[in-house]
Amino acid sequence: MKTTIEITRLRLHAFHGVLEQERRVGNDFEVSVTVGYPVVIGSDELSATLNYAELIDVVKKVMAEPSALLEHVAYRISEAVTSRWPLIDGGMVRVAKLTPPVSSEVAEVAVTLNW
């Protein structure tokens, strides 16, 4: 059976952006990840599923490496996750910048990558 495993709105401070200021000062981000993963239903062992604490660690590691574009960050997260867990058969990564340097008031800007 396949289960959907989700990490929702993981908050991190990172240094992604096109502007030099964003790379120096950083910004607050929220990352959500959803993956489809085959699990052993009926088992109560962690080895029968994808450990979401490890998933968070993978996301944090990728977020620690600056990128200019949110699209690139989302792609790198998807690549790192699917490389770590090859049994993942699809998913979604959403990366939101909470205080983007724009001239209008917005709640966030975000990129969503589905595969």
Rank of each mutant, 00 (worst) to 15 (best):
S103P: 05
V39H: 04
V109D: 03
G36D: 14
I41L: 14
T8M: 05
L46A: 12
T82F: 07
K97V: 08
E79C: 10
A96T: 01
N27F: 07
V73F: 07
V81P: 00
T99A: 15
D28L: 12
R23Q: 15
Y37V: 08
R23V: 05
V106Y: 05
R94P: 00
W85A: 08
G36S: 14
D44L: 12
Q21M: 01
D89E: 14
G36E: 14
M63P: 05
I77M: 04
K2P: 03
A80H: 02
Y75M: 07
A74W: 09
L98T: 11
L12Y: 03
V102N: 02
V33K: 05
I5W: 05
E22N: 01
E65D: 10
L46P: 00
V18N: 02
E108P: 00
D89V: 05
L70V: 10
L10G: 10
V73Q: 04
I88G: 01
V40A: 10
G90R: 09
V102W: 08
I56H: 10
I41H: 11
S83E: 13
V59K: 04
D44W: 00
L10P: 05
E54I: 08
V106N: 09
A110L: 07
G42V: 09
E30A: 15
L10T: 09
T34P: 00
L19V: 10
L55G: 06
V25F: 05
T3N: 13
V25M: 09
A48R: 04
G26D: 06
E20G: 00
S47G: 13
V102I: 15
S83V: 00
R76P: 02
V18L: 11
T8P: 00
L113M: 12
L12R: 08
N51C: 09
V35E: 03
R9M: 11
G42S: 09
P66E: 04
T8L: 13
V62Q: 14
T8F: 04
D89M: 07
V18Q: 04
L69T: 10
R9G: 12
L46F: 01
D89W: 01
S67H: 12
V40Y: 01
V102M: 09
S104I: 13
T34Q: 12
E105G: 10
D57N: 15
K61L: 09
A80V: 02
H72W: 01
F29Y: 15
T49G: 11
I77S: 08
Q21D: 12
L87A: 14
M63T: 06
I77Y: 06
H16W: 03
K97W: 09
M92Q: 13
V18R: 06
F29H: 07
A110Y: 11
A68F: 09
E30M: 11
L87E: 15
L10Y: 05
N114Y: 10
R11Y: 01
Y52F: 14
W115Q: 07
V31R: 05
T82P: 00
L46Q: 12
G91W: 11
L46T: 08
R9N: 15
G17Y: 02
H13V: 11
L69V: 02
A14Q: 06
A48H: 06
T82L: 03
L50N: 04
N114L: 11
D44E: 14
S32R: 04
E20C: 00
T112Q: 14
G26F: 03
E79Y: 01
V31N: 08
D57F: 01
L87G: 00
M1G: 11
L98R: 15
S43C: 02
A110E: 13
